[in-house]
């Protein structure tokens, strides 16, 4: 399987820790990814709010570029990117006239474009269970988390074609493989308010407060996410949330890739764990029983090869 990698704009900026942790996790698991050359932004909700055609053609430019590179799958860690890429593919599949316009703008036909996937799809679908279980080096069985899927991991089902839109399980499954306790809770697929953080932060604080209330009720130590937008909203707004909830709130928000990598013994710097607003390291150290010597990713790759 030849995987192309589409980081998306957030992973080059505010969510650089997601990029670092995904790349090192993939390296450790032997998933070889090649960056999509000269990729452009997917346009998110902004491009389709300006023009219908622009909103479809922008993500598809990347898909067409990935087809040119001969990738079988295009991996995008940002769930908003995944959604907009997948949705554009679906829209032209259903709509002949739109497809003609798109191909006219692109200056080429879309013949057999690669499938767009979120890293969770690769890890849960492509037979990684025994490998992941084998690579566990830290005992995190005392760590209790809730998995927050947000909007676009599995919703809408017709577009995403992955996991359950109302009660998704992929992160619960993955973290279960490395021995982390995943709790049931009611906030799994609620919306954090996404880009409204920049526009109407009060709305985001309100929506995030509900997510944190549900997480606190469940007794979780941390929230685990798979989307840069979810992470930014939950990690960076906790000072304001403390005022709103009337109780001190300092709950680490982690990417699933960071938890998996940490369980597999990667150093915190190789997972970007030093870059959060709410520092997750004290919690990780406290909950980690049977600590092993930390190993750099290149040393681990050699170890796996042997």
């Amino acid at each position: 399987m030849k995987y192309g990698y589409y980081p998306g704009c957030s992973l080059e900026g505010i969510s650089v820790e997601y990029d670092i942790s995904i790349r090192n996790l993939f390296k450790l698991l032997g998933v070889a990814v090649t960056d999509l050359p000269d990729w452009i932004c997917c346009g998110t909700l902004a491009a389709p709010s300006i023009s219908r055609l622009l909103g479809v053609v922008t993500p598809l430019w990347n898909v067409a570029r990935a087809e040119e590179e001969g990738f079988d799958q295009l991996v995008a860690p940002c769930s908003a990117c995944v959604y907009h890429l997948k949705n554009a593919v679906r829209q032209v599949a259903d709509n002949g006239p739109l497809r003609d316009d798109v191909e006219a703008v692109l200056g080429r036909a879309l013949n057999d474009p690669p499938v767009v996937v979120h890293p969770l799809e690769i890890l849960t679908n492509d037979g990684f269970e025994s490998r992941i279980r084998q690579l566990v080096r830290r005992d995190l069985s005392e760590l209790k988390v809730v998995n927050y899927y947000g909007c676009h991991i599995s919703r809408p089902a017709d577009v995403m074609q992955f996991d359950d839109p109302d009660n998704p399980q992929s992160m619960d499954t993955l973290l279960g493989w490395v021995g982390v306790q995943t709790l049931e809770w009611s906030g799994k697929v609620d919306c954090c308010g996404a880009h409204f953080s920049l526009i109407k932060p009060d709305v985001v604080v309100d929506l995030s407060a509900r997510i944190f209330e549900a997480a606190l009720r469940s007794g979780a130590d941390a929230i685990v996410v798979a989307c840069p937008m979810c992470h930014a909203n939950l990690d960076t707004r906790q000072t304001r949330l403390t005022e709103k909830l009337g109780r001190s709130l300092e709950m680490p928000v982690l990417y699933f890739s960071q938890v998996l990598g940490y369980a597999m013994g990667l150093e915190p710097e190789l997972l970007g764990l030093n870059k959060h607003i709410v520092d997750p390291l004290p919690l990780m150290l406290e909950k980690c029983r049977g600590r092993q010597v930390e190993i750099s990713s290149s040393a681990r790759t050699e170890e796996i090869a042997v």
Partner: peptide, 9 residues
């Protein structure tokens, strides 16, 4: 609308 797709879903 934030395009969370709950309605569509």
């Amino acid at each position: 609308c934030v395009d969370c797709e709950t309605c569509t879903s």
